[in-house]
Amino acid sequence: MTTRVLVADDQFLVRAGIVGLLEAADGTEVVGQAADGPEAVLQAARCRPDVILMDIRMPGMNGIEATRRILAAAPDPAPRILILTTFDLDDYVYRALRAGASGFMLKDTGPERLLTAVAAVAGGDTLFAPSVTRRLVEAFTSTAPATQPVGGHPELDQLTARETEVLRLTGRGLSNPQIAQRLVISEATVKTHLNRAMTKLNLASRAQAVVLAYETGLVVPGG
């Protein structure tokens, strides 16, 4: 099965290099390119890609706003968006995850890693390990108090005790197998609880679940 990819980056050489790599690889097809945010939104609607590689800092509209608009307008199945960034602890990355991005990658990522990332998110996975997600979120939430104390977020009241616990452990950076071992349940049960929690909280990705766990105080930065 071929993965259809849209590449959005305002730097021509960077964009051309990524496009060349993807076109030379088996299983991927570049269906569009964009040099700024507005063009990325238009191309996403026209080309219906499976995966979008989205730069953050672009003229006209940044990648965060483009991500938000693309996902808001996209019919199911929505594209999976990977954020391209120069710095692994860029504040824009955190905001992009809140906007619904599936993960992030550094622009100096090697070719093999890039291709693996595209294949992974096309299959429904996140690009980065939960521990990386945790480190990213901690870097920004540790500088400010959580927006709501534990129990002060009305959306969490929708969750069962088990769903809340699975969300908390997800926020701490544990993978599904690790959560299953911790709670002495099957991986399938973990996935079911997490999916139900995400549906109730209107979350589009595991990354958003991690962010919400921090923002609601389920997980304390550095704890």
Rank of each mutant, 00 (worst) to 15 (best):
Val31Tyr: 01
Ile83Asn: 02
Ala146Gln: 11
Pro149Gln: 06
Gly60Ser: 01
Pro59Lys: 04
Ala144Asp: 13
Ala204Trp: 07
Arg134Trp: 10
Thr170Ile: 06
His153Trp: 15
Glu187Tyr: 08
Asp88Glu: 14
Ala139Thr: 13
Gly124Trp: 10
Lys107Glu: 06
Val211Thr: 03
Ile185Phe: 02
Gln181Ile: 06
Leu97Glu: 04
Glu215Asp: 15
Ile81Arg: 04
Ala117Phe: 07
Thr126Met: 12
Phe12Trp: 14
Gln43Glu: 14
Phe140Thr: 08
Ala44Leu: 04
Ala122Lys: 00
Leu212Cys: 09
Gly123Gln: 08
Arg68Ser: 03
Glu29Gln: 12
Thr189Lys: 07
Asn176Glu: 14
Glu65Tyr: 09
Thr164Leu: 15
Val5Phe: 02
Leu13Gln: 13
Thr3His: 10
Pro49Glu: 08
Glu215Ile: 04
Gly124His: 07
Met58Gly: 00
Arg46Trp: 13
Leu136Glu: 07
Met198Arg: 15
Ser205Pro: 03
Gln11Asp: 13
Gln148Val: 14
Gly100Pro: 01
Asn62Met: 01
Leu194Asp: 07
Pro145Thr: 01
Asp90Pro: 03
Thr2Gly: 05
Thr67Ile: 06
Asp76Trp: 07
Leu53Asp: 03
Phe140His: 06
Val5Leu: 01
Arg48Val: 11
Arg46Asn: 11
Asp91His: 12
Asp26Gln: 13
Asp50His: 11
Met198Phe: 09
Glu112Met: 13
Lys191His: 13
Asp26Cys: 05
Arg46Asp: 15
Glu138Thr: 02
Gly20His: 01
Lys191Tyr: 12
Ala44His: 06
Gln178Ser: 14
Cys47Tyr: 03
Tyr214Gly: 03
Leu42Thr: 13
Val31Ala: 04
Gly223Asp: 10
Met1Val: 14
Ala73Met: 11
Leu194Ala: 07
Asp91Ala: 15
Ala16Thr: 13
Asn195Ser: 12
Ala120Ser: 09
Ser205Glu: 11
Gln33Cys: 10
Ser205Trp: 06
Leu169Cys: 08
Val137Glu: 02
Thr85Gln: 08
Glu23Tyr: 04
Tyr214His: 09
Pro49Phe: 08
Gly100His: 05
Met58Gln: 05
Met105His: 05
Ile52His: 02
Leu159Trp: 07
Arg68Gln: 09
Ser102Tyr: 10
Arg4Cys: 06
Ser186Lys: 08
Asp50Ser: 09
Ala8Gly: 04
Thr141Asp: 00
Leu53Glu: 05
Glu23Phe: 13
Asp26Met: 11
Ile83Ser: 00
Leu13Met: 14
Gly171Phe: 02
Ala119Ile: 03
Arg206Ile: 03
Asn176Lys: 10
Val184Gln: 08
Arg46Phe: 10
Gly27Leu: 05
Asp91Val: 13
Gly123Arg: 04
Val219Trp: 01
Ile18Ala: 12
Leu115Val: 04
